[in-house]
């Protein structure tokens, strides 16, 4: 009975200590956990993607067997070979495009690989990158792909960094239309259903929304939305997405626009962290 009491009190004391750790100590603790598990996370992602590929091969083969068993064994083999070649070619093309993009970009970019998808607690929409502070990544830097803006870095450890996606409600981007020049704020709709609890919202068909656009602004469907550079986090001119629909806010004070992100956020493999150039550099 006595030892149980001791255990309860020790637990309470430890929890209180952890909850009240000074911020640097808490961050160091976090970094330790993340850096320690980063290689395993990388392996887990690799295993899952291989498993996914294997599963798709099996289902394809099963479908084929139901048609003509003998012939389709050979076809499955050929398909697998073609698929392998295609995926290699696709990867090759992707890497070449990334390389060209890096050379062409006016910003200094740090190429990173995505090693983890999503926040383990499921409250934030994030991805984890394989580069951290030792590679020059800092907090609040824009993250992009060849197609457009992905989000911004939030928590950076020595060897990993977390990126808050633009579809997360905590991520706000100062944006504008390149055509007319109207300004607004793009905000993720990923988990909020406060204003539109429709089934559309549940499936995130409108992952982002741009608010506070002047009513006089003429906006058309498929217009591009780019970063305005205001606020300092995101450099000006990065493509955020395209306009999906336009409506007036219920207050009648400004226009709102549903925005489809330009970057394929569901299938991120390689991204770039945009490093802010210091004055004089």
């Amino acid at each position: 009975m006595n030892s149980k009491k001791t255990l309860v009190w020790t637990t309470i004391v430890l929890v209180v200590i952890i909850l009240n750790l000074p911020l640097p100590a808490s961050l160091r603790m976090k970094d330790g956990v993340r850096d320690g598990l980063a290689p395993f996370q990388n392996v887990m992602t690799l295993v899952l993607s291989k498993g996914k590929r294997m599963f798709s091969v099996v289902t394809d083969a099963n479908k084929a067997i139901s048609d003509k068993e003998e012939m389709l064994k050979e076809i499955a083999l050929l398909r697998e070979k073609v698929r392998r070649n295609e995926s290699l070619a696709e990867e090759n093309a992707g890497l070449r495009a990334n390389l060209r993009f890096k050379k062409r970009s006016p910003h200094r970019l740090i190429p990173c690989e995505v090693i983890g998808r999503g926040d383990i607690s499921s409250w934030w929409q994030t991805v984890r990158l394989n580069k951290g502070s030792v590679h020059g990544v800092k907090e609040d830097l824009a993250v992009i792909t060849v197609d457009g803006l992905v989000g911004k870095t939030t928590q950076v450890s020595r060897h990993t960094s977390d990126v808050l996606l633009i579809t997360d409600p905590n991520c706000k981007v100062a944006a504008r239309f390149p055509s007319g020049g109207g300004f607004g704020i793009v905000r993720g709709q990923g988990v909020t259903s406060a204003e539109d609890p429709s089934i559309q919202m549940l499936y995130s068909l409108n992952p982002c929304r741009m608010d506070y656009i002047a009513k006089t602004e003429v906006i058309l469907r498929a217009d591009s939305v780019i970063t305005s550079g205001l606020g300092g986090t995101y450099p000006a001119g990065l493509k955020v997405g395209v306009v999906k629909s336009v409506e007036e806010h219920s207050s009648g004070l400004y226009k709102c626009v549903a925005v489809m992100p330009a970057a394929e956020l569901m299938d991120l493999k390689y991204v770039f962290v945009v490093v802010k150039e210091q004055a004089g550099q």
Binding site: V15, I18, L19, N20, L21, S26, M29, K30, G32, V33, R34, L37, D119, I120, S121, W123, W124, T126, T154, Q155, D162
Partner: peptide
């Protein structure tokens, strides 16, 4: 709790508690 807090954006100690 430590793993969940460390691997997410939660404040340290929240999941532990």
């Amino acid at each position: 709790g430590l793993l969940q807090d460390g691997l997410s954006m939660m404040p340290m100690g929240c999941s532990v508690l």
